[in-house]
């Protein structure tokens, strides 16, 4: 029987830090930042599967996030069902939408997939914004007070924090598992060169499709978590372009196509966003767009591999220096 390897020290410290954070910072404000950080990390990690690993840049992932957010509260509004029931239905709807978009567009090369995702996400946002059945521009509300635990409506931030942490753990575990298996090698090969990958027998279209489906499912879960936490969703917060852009930026800042890149990106971006919103009040929310734009320019110009790539480069330099002096 194979022995299980001990987790690396960095990973252990990170896990312990994340578990202890809400206990060390019991103030609701800091706990809220923690929950927002985890949600951003989950959504960006989900995007990372198709955008980072497989290199299929979706700029419309809000469509899956929105479906995941709307379905539980729609079920609650229509029939009073607990949001928990709507979560798997949201996943199924997201999978169906991913298949409809992916089948024709993932066969094409270039930016067609990106353009298709933006177009569909915007279309859905406009449609939802004018459709009374799903609350039109006003949106939908979840249970104001939980009838039981399965309504996932809590007064404290603490249960949300740990639920989100478990989901993040699952997303990262799934990603780490595929990363070291055939699927992980295939997606990275596709990102590096589709033509070469095909010549080696990689089923390119099906592999991209699998990546998109997996990514859509986790993004849908992120949307559902968002709505159980806030208890409310409208077209902007569910399907808005900024939702998609944030996933891309968080993953790209930390390092797209790396396991912990999205975590690192969220760790920097979310406190920064919260700080600007608090310091500048309502006017600060506009600054978010400026920050995103600035980050895109900086990453594209100086560090396309994100901060994790920068970190690895610095480590390699240090090792070389140590080797040279030894």
């Amino acid at each position: 029987m194979k022995k299980l390897a001990a987790p690396p020290l960095g990973l252990t410290l990170l896990a312990v830090g994340l578990v202890l954070y809400p206990l060390l910072f019991s103030d609701a404000f800091y706990r809220d930042i923690g929950v927002t950080f985890l949600l951003a990390a989950i959504a960006a990690s989900a995007w990372n599967i198709v955008g980072g690993y497989a290199g299929q840049i979706s700029v419309g992932h809000s469509m899956f996030f929105g479906i995941g957010a709307y379905t539980p509260v729609l079920f609650y509004t229509l029939w009073g069902w607990p949001p928990l029931v709507g979560i798997p239905v949201g996943i199924l709807l997201s999978l169906a939408l991913a298949a409809v978009i992916g089948l024709p567009t993932l066969r094409l090369s270039g930016h067609y997939f990106s353009m298709a995702t933006i177009a569909v996400a915007e279309l859905i946002r406009i449609l939802v914004g004018t459709w009374n059945f799903v609350g039109a521009a006003i949106g939908l509300q979840g249970p104001a007070r939980g009838r039981a635990w399965w309504d996932l409506t809590f007064r404290s931030e603490l249960p949300y924090y740990y639920i989100f942490l478990v989901v993040l753990g699952i997303v990262l575990a799934v990603t780490a598992t595929f990363e070291s298996r055939r699927f992980g090698y295939y997606v990275r090969a596709i990102k590096a060169g589709e033509r070469a990958a095909k010549s080696l027998g990689v089923p390119v279209h099906w592999t991209k499709m699998q990546a998109l489906l997996l990514s859509a499912a986790f993004t849908s879960i992120a949307g559902s978590l968002y709505v159980v936490k806030t208890g409310f969703v409208d077209p902007g917060s569910g399907f808005g372009i900024l939702v998609s852009v944030q996933m891309v930026i968080v993953a790209a800042l930390g390092g797209a196509g790396t396991l912990y890149g999205p975590l690192l990106g969220a760790l920097i971006l979310i406190p920064l966003q919260t700080a600007t919103n608090n310091w500048l009040g309502g006017g600060g929310s506009g600054l978010t767009f400026i920050i995103y734009g600035g980050i895109i320019v900086l990453i594209a110009r100086f560090e396309p591999g994100g901060l994790s790539e920068l970190w690895h480069r610095l480590l390699r330099k240090r090792w070389k220096r140590v080797d040279a002096t030894a």
């Binding site: 990275r188 090969a189 590096a192 060169g193 033509r195 070469a196 010549s199």
Partner: peptide
């Protein structure tokens, strides 16, 4: 193989 080598650069 290809005329211009197409290796997977980051791997």
């Amino acid at each position: 193989t290809f005329q211009v080598p197409t290796t997977f650069e980051d791997m």
